[in-house]
Write a protein that binds this DNA or RNA. Sequence first.
RNA 1: GCGGGUGUAGCUCAGUGGUAGAGCACCACGUUGCCAACGUGGAUGUCGAGGGUUCGAAUCCCUUCGCCCGCUCCA
Length: 563
Amino acid sequence: MSRSMEKIVALCKRRGFVFQNSEIYGGQNGFWDYGPLGTELKRNVRNVWYEDMVQSHNELLLQDGAPVKFQMVGLETSIIMHPQVWKCSGHYDLFHDMMVDCRETRGRYRLDQVRVRRVSCNEKTVPGQLDGTPPDSIRDGDQKEFEHVIVASTAEEFQEDLTAEALRVFGLKKKYADRVQWDGDATTLDRIAEADFAYVVAPGASRAGSFTAPREFNLMFKTIIGALGSSEDAAFLRPETAQGIFVNFRNVADSTRVKLPFGVAQIGKSFRNEITPRNFTFRSREFEQMEIEFFCHPEQSRDWYTWWRDHRYQWYQRLGISPDRLILRDHEASELAHYSVGTADIEYAFPFLEDGEYGELEGVAHRGNFDLRSHMEGKLAKNDNGELEVEQDEQGQPVHRGSGKDLSYFDDQSRERFVPHVIEPSAGADRATLAFICEAYHEDAQPDEHGKPQERTVMKFHPRLAPVKAAVFPLIKKEGMPEKAAEIFGELKAAGLNCHYDQQGAIGRRYRRQDEIGTPFCITVDGDTASDNTVTLRDRDSLEQIRVGADRIVQEISDRLKV
RNA sequence: GCGGGUGUAGCUCAGUGGUAGAGCACCACGUUGCCAACGUGGAUGUCGAGGGUUCGAAUCCCUUCGCCCGCUCCA
């Protein structure tokens, strides 16, 4: 059995699951379109998630292993939000940087974090590129010796480190530190002219001019609000749907009579300017998230975290993902975001990864009260004691002001007021869809009409996810079979089931066509149907056929879809 | 972002300067009638895009875009 990504991608295109975006114009890196079958599949992924998490969740029953009963509600917030949302959430500061790369050491630095200082040394020079050559157009052979250079450091003790760098680039021993002649004070890289980059020796680099021109790294998509909008009207396309839930916490709590603990679920598009979109739809710049923010009492939050982590891990398995290819990985303490008490990834062994490597499908994060507090008080940062407090500028003002609105919760049973803690199971709809596609892909050998084994490609989608639920065939194109098959097809459609009708070509070929798109059931009207009103029902995976009364077929299919 | 590979029919690919091809798939008719392989006929391409060299470019050169692999990056 071969599960190569190449074959899966080819099938996705051939049968209309996934197309390259704007393909006729040469494509657009990081963006993908879903074809007719992919649209059905992804819609099923979203619907199954929403049904399982929200619509069929029974708040009157205690869920297996859950600390207490809880409620779940849905929300749909807009993609563009007030710019302050992203300042308080921390995305603005973390995403909006001028960066330079060193072509020699392959280091990448934030422009404002690189300390630089002009320096020279009598009779010593540093190799670099031709005077005035823009750093991006250096060719080998354009080399030249510089008497004056600019050394760089990212160390916290930058004064000492700049000296060390100067000695290093001039090839001097430590005791000759007094031979180095400084020209002006240390400054940061963003304060020197780009033309002078030719003289900058990057940390650890052997020659000057290895930095690229500064580039703005903004992982958030910028947009302009208003037809006459200028740059002051800049806004962002959300990089996650979660913030829409946090800023509506008060609204949801006030309008629905929900009591803690409760979860708010949202499905929607998000956008990130990924540096390297790759691996088919896995890392896309426009993608869809299925997120839950679960609000609970701080004392219960750790129990809820493990419950949600395990609960979500089970969900993928119930929909057919093999535990052999699915792992639950707890983050190391060093991997945790600054606000997080614990995070686990649910990861899948995608075929484009090496053996033993996994790609993230969903992150389940314990976010503490970071988000609600940030939107109340302003952007938070950890102080020296490791506690979160509002980040302040030199004047003691908040770097990013919060809403000032009270987002705490009053528990009228315990008469207690507190800011809820949040557990965030955040799943990628496109990644889940891709995982279900990869997991479904099978090649096997099935005997043909002569009993000879023939290769078969079959997508073994879980029936709830399968884009087409059933196909209806007349065995032959005459003797009233097409009419009877069309009648059954009509009944299935009327029951809301996405079905195919096919009378084209040999019956075996029609079965194989359905196998390749993962249709779990095929219904065939044959010569016996006219006399006893039964049809054959063929199972995709076992190839078994049973006879079912034509008047029971809709019920039979519906039952089999509720696995 | 860097390096390597690659792009020709819906799909898989052949075609190294001289009339754009094959297999599969697709459509029509006939045949067979429960697991893709029958017959006859049919439609299918700005050879990824733009520019250049040439009498002539899928083929050579330059630029650009996508995809794949490795490195880098990934709040």
